[in-house]
């Protein structure tokens, strides 16, 4: 194997964070379905689903802070910061690639480097997910975990149904995201290339 063609794009802490997050997401989505549709689904008893959901939820909140501290302390957080000057043309270019070029076998317009591993679309999506959607999901989850304890904040934000609406819409969004994310991960130079990279840290270039 030619090592010169390999780029180290996923450092150890990021890989650990990613796979813990991935496993957590699957568990949260499954238990989330059981909790939301307790009268229809019977995967596990409701109280067990809630207990697991709570424990895994808090684990992922901790995991989020591992990610945040790592990215802030290393300055790598800038890979999530959008460059408004190039954002729109790059995003259009990337959309054209995914919607047309990829089927023809065109080259990906984005060339991954350790400091610029996301294409314009990924950058936007992950910035929104990591900096808006995940915090919103975590916060709404904590509120739902202790409804009485946080009742003042819940009332301030429009009531428990509003909090639940945020949590549920994001839950479905993340369910959809996991499917699309897994599919997009097959778009490497081989279908398993990106999966392997997330284990080894090295992306073939």
């Amino acid at each position: 194997m030619n090592n010169e063609k390999r780029l180290y794009v996923h450092p150890g802490p990021v890989r650990v964070w990613h796979w813990v997050n991935a496993l957590g997401f699957v568990i949260l989505i499954l238990t989330g379905f059981q909790i939301r549709f307790a009268d229809i689904l019977n995967i596990m008893p409701l109280q067990d689903a809630i207990t697991i959901h709570n424990y895994v939820g808090f684990t992922l909140i901790g995991n989020y802070f591992i990610w945040l501290i790592y990215y802030l302390s290393t300055g790598k957080i800038k890979i999530y910061i959008l460059d408004v000057r190039t954002l729109v043309p790059m995003a259009i270019k990337q959309m054209l690639y995914y919607g047309y070029g990829i089927f023809r076998g065109d080259e990906n317009p984005h060339h991954m480097t350790p400091d610029n591993k996301f294409n314009a679309l990924q950058q936007q999506a992950y910035a929104a997910i990591m900096l808006i959607f995940l915090p919103a999901q975590m916060l709404s989850g904590v509120f739902l975990w202790k409804v009485k304890g946080y009742s003042d904040y819940i009332h301030l934000l429009g009531g428990i149904k509003t909090i639940d609406t945020i949590h549920v819409i994001l839950f479905f969004f993340f369910g959809s995201f996991v499917m699309i994310h897994c599919y997009l991960a097959t778009l490497g130079h081989t279908p398993l290339a990106h999966f392997k990279a997330m284990f080894t840290g090295y992306e073939d270039h």
């Binding site: 909790i35 939301r36 549709f37 307790a38 009268d39 409701l46 819940i154 009332h155 429009g158 009531g159 428990i160 149904k161 509003t162 639940d164 549920v168």
Partner: peptide, 10 residues
Amino acid sequence: SHFYLMSGTR
């Protein structure tokens, strides 16, 4: 909006 019974009143 200040009442929600999980699953039951979704």
